[in-house]
Simulated assay, not measured.
Amino acid sequence: MSSSRPLEAPADAAERRAVKPVICYPNGTLPEPDMDLIDRLRTTLEKIGDIVVPPREGATFSVPKGHFFRILSIDGPQVGDLNLWNADDLTERFFSGKTRALHATHVTTGNRLWSTLPNLRPMATITHDTLGWYGFDEFGGSVHDVIGTRCDPYTSRLLSGGDYHHCCHSNLTRALAGAKGMSFAEAEPLVHDVLNVFMCTGFTADTHQYFMKASPVRPGDYIEFFAEIDLLGGLSACPGGDCSAQHSSDTAICYPLKVEVFRPDMDLLKDWPFPERNGYRDPE
């Protein structure tokens, strides 16, 4: 919300506003995943592992290239913050801003999660989304956004003056540090903007502020991904629960989330075009 005083509009204001928009990144040339093959692979899945992420905590998990993973609601409506790293190179990680620019503010089946520059390749493809029916509601809200950053203790202190230690940023940092034998200070710069799994968000029509509302997720709902590279994932069960009222809170009702990892029939993947790092190189 802006606090600046309104200015008188110029005489040609209506003409300027009437200019038609242009899509910044036309994506018609993006290589599309073979969803028919994905569907065949999904019929062969064998679960090889799972973890439960406790409420207001974070955890990491590993997904080999060519495998699938699901994030599930199990006990009650709960949103989660997802980080993804290249398991062999933590400097390559999920790039929410470019994913948003290439796809949309909210992602679903068939969309891909892209990695940071200079790599810029799909890290994972969304293969199934039980909330894909939601679309956009009357408030402009939708689920699985790549708009928000992640709740963090620095913004919490900025806005409230208090310290809160179970923000998603902190949960993800502690989880990564524990998994890789790092200190908190070493892990923190590697934690990045997230996919807000199950979170229902948008922008208000009047002030254009980022909003959240009660997530439509229910126990049994899940979002599923296909790993395009070897992945290390991080997931925080947000301290806001279903984010119907607040986050960074010890009073919101929170539930655990579950991550399941599956191996498909790998013989079906012999011709899958696993992505290489982006080919651009500066001529110097």
Score class of each variant (00 low, 15 high):
residue 78 Q to K: 01
residue 78 Q to A: 02
residue 78 Q to E: 10
residue 80 G to L: 00
residue 81 D to N: 15
residue 83 N to R: 01
residue 86 N to Y: 02
residue 87 A to G: 10
residue 89 D to N: 11
residue 91 T to G: 06
residue 92 E to K: 01
residue 94 F to R: 00
residue 95 F to N: 13
residue 96 S to P: 00
residue 97 G to Y: 04
residue 98 K to P: 01
residue 99 T to G: 02
residue 99 T to V: 04
residue 103 H to P: 01
residue 103 H to S: 06
residue 103 H to C: 04
residue 105 T to V: 08
residue 105 T to A: 12
residue 106 H to M: 05
residue 107 V to L: 10
residue 108 T to D: 07
residue 108 T to Y: 05
residue 109 T to H: 02
residue 109 T to M: 04
residue 111 N to E: 09
residue 111 N to R: 04
residue 112 R to T: 13
residue 112 R to Q: 15
residue 112 R to H: 07
residue 115 S to M: 13
residue 115 S to Y: 13
residue 116 T to N: 11
residue 118 P to C: 15
residue 118 P to E: 15
residue 120 L to V: 14
residue 121 R to G: 06
residue 121 R to E: 08
residue 122 P to R: 11
residue 122 P to A: 13
residue 122 P to V: 12
residue 123 M to N: 06
residue 125 T to F: 04
residue 127 T to K: 04
residue 127 T to V: 11
residue 128 H to S: 13
residue 130 T to Y: 06
residue 133 W to V: 05
residue 134 Y to S: 07
residue 135 G to C: 02
residue 135 G to H: 06
residue 135 G to D: 01
residue 135 G to L: 03
residue 135 G to I: 02
residue 136 F to E: 11
residue 140 G to A: 07
residue 140 G to H: 11
residue 141 G to A: 15
residue 143 V to H: 15
residue 143 V to E: 14
residue 144 H to N: 15
residue 144 H to V: 11
residue 145 D to S: 13
residue 147 I to Q: 11
residue 148 G to E: 14
residue 148 G to T: 07
residue 152 D to K: 03
residue 152 D to P: 00
residue 154 Y to G: 02
residue 154 Y to T: 05
residue 156 S to N: 09
residue 156 S to D: 08
residue 156 S to T: 10
residue 157 R to I: 01
residue 158 L to F: 15
residue 159 L to Q: 09
residue 159 L to W: 12
residue 160 S to K: 04
residue 163 D to M: 10
residue 163 D to Q: 12
residue 165 H to C: 06
residue 165 H to T: 13
residue 169 H to W: 11
residue 169 H to L: 14
residue 170 S to D: 15
residue 172 L to C: 14
residue 172 L to D: 15
residue 172 L to Q: 15
residue 175 A to C: 08
residue 178 G to E: 04
residue 178 G to P: 01
residue 178 G to D: 06
residue 179 A to W: 02
residue 181 G to F: 06
residue 181 G to L: 09
residue 181 G to R: 10
residue 182 M to E: 04
